[in-house]
Simulated scan of single mutants.
Amino acid sequence: MARDGAEPSYARALAMAEQLLGIPLEQFLELGPGEPENAADFKRLATAHTFGDSWPRTDVLDTQTRALVSVTIAAVLGTLEPLRGQLRIALNRGVTPEEIVEVFIHIEAYAGAARAFEGYQIAKQVFEEAVDTKKV
């Protein structure tokens, strides 16, 4: 899934993903063993919609707010690997660890302690990564 030769909107989505995540997304989009060819279509469509259509909409919600909403959604759904990515995006966009902890306090109040603690374990790991790479 290289950017070369990609349609311009998809290339913009990949660039936005890299800007938000701090790493190229392509490594996660390559087809793995056993994946059917149409999985590439799924990954392209999801990437184009998420990073090409949703994230750039900053007229009403700024990127930091959108990042906190995304952290909340991933944590409440219990999608832990996507939560890891959303936490990285949040930190890369200037959201502080203290603000993220406040999100987990609010998640605990409304979605329950078990869900909040499970997600917070991922947040702790991402905080440690950020310290190791000097991003916090």
Score class of each variant (00 low, 15 high):
124 K>N: 11
13 A>R: 05
116 A>S: 02
25 L>W: 08
48 A>E: 14
79 T>V: 15
57 R>W: 12
59 D>Q: 13
22 G>E: 00
22 G>W: 01
122 I>K: 08
103 V>M: 01
7 E>T: 13
64 Q>E: 06
36 P>L: 14
102 E>Q: 03
25 L>H: 08
19 Q>M: 13
70 S>M: 07
51 F>Q: 05
37 E>L: 12
1 M>K: 08
69 V>Q: 12
129 E>P: 01
21 L>N: 05
50 T>V: 14
97 P>V: 01
32 G>P: 08
116 A>R: 04
34 G>E: 06
75 A>K: 00
134 K>N: 12
9 S>M: 15
65 T>F: 06
17 A>H: 02
43 K>R: 07
37 E>W: 11
103 V>Y: 02
98 E>T: 10
63 T>H: 10
74 A>F: 01
24 P>Q: 07
72 T>F: 01
50 T>C: 14
11 A>F: 06
110 Y>E: 05
51 F>T: 08
135 K>T: 08
69 V>I: 06
109 A>T: 11
136 V>Q: 12
22 G>Q: 06
126 V>Y: 02
58 T>Y: 12
73 I>Q: 03
86 Q>A: 09
35 E>W: 07
129 E>D: 06
73 I>L: 07
21 L>E: 08
59 D>E: 14
12 R>T: 09
66 R>E: 01
64 Q>C: 06
2 A>C: 15
71 V>P: 10
103 V>R: 03
43 K>D: 02
11 A>W: 07
1 M>E: 10
40 A>V: 08
82 P>N: 03
93 R>D: 04
92 N>R: 00
97 P>F: 00
61 L>E: 09
19 Q>R: 14
99 E>G: 09
